[in-house]
Design a binder for these strands. Structure first.
Length: 372
RNA sequence: GGGUCGAUGCCCGAGUGGCUAAAGGGAACGGGCUGUAAACCCGUUGGCGUGAGCCUACGUUGGUUCGAAUCCAACUCGGCCCA
């Protein structure tokens, strides 16, 4: 049994689920937060620390790895796990998000997207079949359909166009998929905050019977309330026995609220990016380390955290690492704060799982609704 | 002792009659970051006022002028050169 997903606990009071996802490279407890390692590395963090903080799965990105070093290179160097020194489960994004995030320098055709490489300006073509085959070569346990993520707000016509494309591409990805026994391919529900679009997209994808479903196209500018409202509408319509993944989300508040709608998986660059920028998440709220009030603070980032950073370094020291040269912090600072943030996100998920198991999720979620 | 150059906001430094509360940089302070083109980007930084605006500021004192950081004189301090 290479793959399996089981719900270990649920409650009648809410839709949060405590689950377990089994993959060829290991077991993942859900709800789960997946650190992002776009180019085959989580910026600043070595794999042993990723294990230490309890992360069970990390992300990679098709677009970036396709540009450099190329899917063949990764494949010949043993696949993404061997290549990146991470032996646990992995998930690769399809590059679909780059269609959106690199908007303005790309052309979207019926069945392909042309990018201008951000590295050297060369024209890069990506299509559903290529994106799938690249992900087959990279070898992650979970791979994603190549979708189109539209920037919000947008017209209904534009959204419909993207959903039509996403649906057609989803089927193409499924047909092109070369390793269905080793890699689970997830479909992605698009539709922005438009419920009609969301429902239609979900219904059509469900007909294709993917082993897991993602909700894409959120956290792209809409409010927290709109995002959660959309999840609250669409997540319960996804097959309950399959994993649900809310892509690109999010903040602690976003994630706990989304778990309440039935989401099982998250990924976000926020803990690492913000960590590099001197912004720490803690159980007591967030901290901007550059702020003067931490200058003489000898305490850890988070009294309740047991991560390497919190065990060994004070806020005052971390602040110093960011401010000893404002233009170019001591690299240890970004590394230590990224590590802490990831550890905090793992702690948050572990505690949330426990809260679900112990039937005190509602109370737990209320606490995080007020975060920040 | 003689000559010469200089003294600008927290620091460095531009400006050499009005468009100057004064370029630019540093430093300090603050904000942003949600499937990573991001160890990045953006603000604020004389005082008071929400604001129009008012006040105080370009070493000191005095002068020229409608008007001076900018021109003149003396002085104070500093750099360099000559004795």
């Amino acid at each position: 049994m290479k793959f399996n997903f089981e719900i270990l606990h649920r409650s009648d009071e809410h839709r949060a689920r405590r689950g377990r996802l089994t993959t060829p490279h290991g077991v993942i407890d859900t709800p789960v937060f997946m650190p992002v390692g776009t180019r085959g590395a989580i910026k600043g963090i070595l794999p042993d620390r990723i294990h230490e903080i309890g992360a069970q799965i990390v992300l990679g990105n098709t677009y970036h790895l396709l540009l450099r070093p190329g899917a063949d290179v990764v494949e010949q160097l043993g696949g993404l796990q061997r290549f990146s020194g991470w032996d646990g489960p992995m998930l690769t994004d399809s590059g679909g998000f780059q269609v959106f995030s690199l908007a303005g320098i790309n052309r979207i055709g019926e069945d392909e997207v042309e990018f201008r490489s951000h590295i050297d300006g060369a024209k890069i073509r990506l299509d559903p079949v290529t994106a799938t085959h690249v992900q087959n070569k990279l070898g992650a346990d979970i791979i994603m359909a190549f979708d189109e993520c539209v920037k919000l707000p947008c017209t209904t016509e534009r959204m419909k166009e993207a959903v039509v494309r996403t649906l057609r591409w989803a089927e193409m990805c499924q047909e092109a998929h070369l390793r269905p026994d080793d890699q689970w391919l997830f479909g992605i529900v698009q539709g922005g905050t438009n419920k009609e679009m969301r429902q239609w997209c979900a219904e059509e994808l469900i007909k294709l019977d993917f082993p897991g479903y993602a909700v894409g196209g959120l956290s792209v500018g809409e409010s927290h309330e709109e995002m959660i409202e959309t999840c609250d509408f669409i997540v319960p319509k996804l097959p309950p026995e399959k994993p649900r993944y809310l892509m690109g989300v999010g903040t602690p508040k976003d994630m706990v609220a989304a778990i309440a709608t039935g989401v099982d998986m998250f990924d976000c660059v926020i803990p690492t990016r913000n960590g590099r920028h001197g912004f720490a998440f803690t159980s007591q709220g967030s901290i901007r380390l550059r702020n003067e009030k931490h200058k003489l603070d000898n305490g850890p980032l988070d009294e309740n955290c047991n991560c390497y950073t919190c065990r060994n370094f004070s806020r005052g020291y971390l602040r110093h690492l960011f401010l000893c040269d404002r233009k170019k912090p001591e690299m240890t600072g970004p590394i230590l704060v990224s590590l802490h943030n990831l550890a905090f996100f793992q702690w948050l998920m572990a505690e949330t799982r426990k809260a679900i198991e112990e039937d005190r999720f509602v109370e737990w979620a209320a606490r995080w609704a007020k975060y920040e």
